[in-house]
Amino acid sequence: MNLPNKLTLLRGILVPFFVFFILLEGGNNLLYRYIGLGIFCFASFTDFLDGYLARKNHLVTNFGKFMDPLADKLLVCSALICLIPLGELPAWYVVILIGREFVISGFRLVAADHNIVIAASIFGKAKTASQMLMIILLLLQIPTLAFVNQIFIVLSLALTILSLVDYVYKNHRVISEGGF
């Protein structure tokens, strides 16, 4: 297993530790919250690093194309779910963002059954980056950034919807070939 794939696996392994610290004491203890935030930031950095290393060193694999987006989904969706009881995001918003992830994962599974690998698009990458930045901003809880937080909440929702439309448009053959 190459280094980029190991970083992808590490990101998945870090998720329970992130959730533990974020939700410890109801998210009210800033020390635990910032430890969780540090874990999230490190895990998010591995997303950038594994992609960079894979492309730079020609280590792009089908495993990486499939597992990297799943590790991203696990990290981001866990964070989004944690932000509901912390009062940072409404449940309806999180349902929309996670619903998109289920749809795209379904596309990928059907495509894989037909030996097609659907790699992340530029819109999908932008969506993930905006969500990660939004999560970081919300976890920081800096009152003077409330307006910036709202911008990232709206931007993340817009990119989520845009990337969903882009995936469906570009991969509509997966639906027809999948017998839907």
Rank of each mutant, 00 (worst) to 15 (best):
M1E: 09
M1W: 00
P4Q: 03
P4K: 03
P4W: 01
N5Y: 10
K6Y: 05
L9W: 09
L10E: 02
G12D: 08
F17P: 04
F17H: 01
V19L: 13
F20H: 08
F21D: 01
F21K: 01
G27I: 07
N28T: 06
N28I: 00
L30Y: 09
Y32I: 00
R33W: 05
G36R: 05
L37F: 10
L37V: 06
G38V: 05
F40P: 01
F40L: 14
C41F: 11
A43V: 00
S44Q: 06
S44R: 00
S44M: 10
F45N: 08
Y52S: 04
R55S: 04
R55V: 00
K56T: 13
N57C: 00
L59R: 00
V60N: 01
V60L: 02
V60G: 01
T61M: 07
N62E: 14
F63H: 08
G64K: 05
K65S: 11
K65G: 11
M67Y: 15
D68N: 09
P69T: 09
D72K: 05
K73Y: 04
K73D: 05
L74T: 12
V76G: 00
L80Q: 01
I81V: 15
I81W: 09
G87S: 04
G87P: 06
L89D: 09
L89Y: 08
L89W: 08
P90N: 14
A91V: 02
Y93E: 02
V94S: 07
L97T: 07
L97A: 10
R100K: 15
R100F: 09
E101N: 12
F102Q: 12
S105E: 13
G106R: 12
G106F: 13
V110E: 11
A111G: 12
A112Y: 12
D113L: 14
D113G: 15
D113E: 13
H114Y: 09
H114Q: 15
I122C: 04
F123Y: 15
G124R: 14
K127G: 13
T128Y: 11
A129D: 03
A129Q: 06
Q131F: 07
I135A: 04
I136T: 13
L139E: 10
L140I: 13
Q141M: 06
P143L: 06
L145V: 01
L145K: 07
A146I: 15
F147L: 15
V148G: 01
Q150T: 08
I151T: 11
I151E: 05
F152A: 02
F152P: 12
I153M: 05
V154Q: 09
L155P: 10
L155G: 06
L155Q: 06
S156M: 05
S156Q: 07
A158R: 03
A158L: 15
A158N: 02
L159N: 03
I161W: 01
S163H: 09
S163L: 03
Y167W: 11
Y167E: 11
Y169M: 08
N171G: 11
H172Q: 12
H172E: 08
V174H: 04
V174A: 07
V174K: 08
I175F: 15
S176V: 14
E177D: 13
E177C: 01
G178Y: 04
G179Q: 06
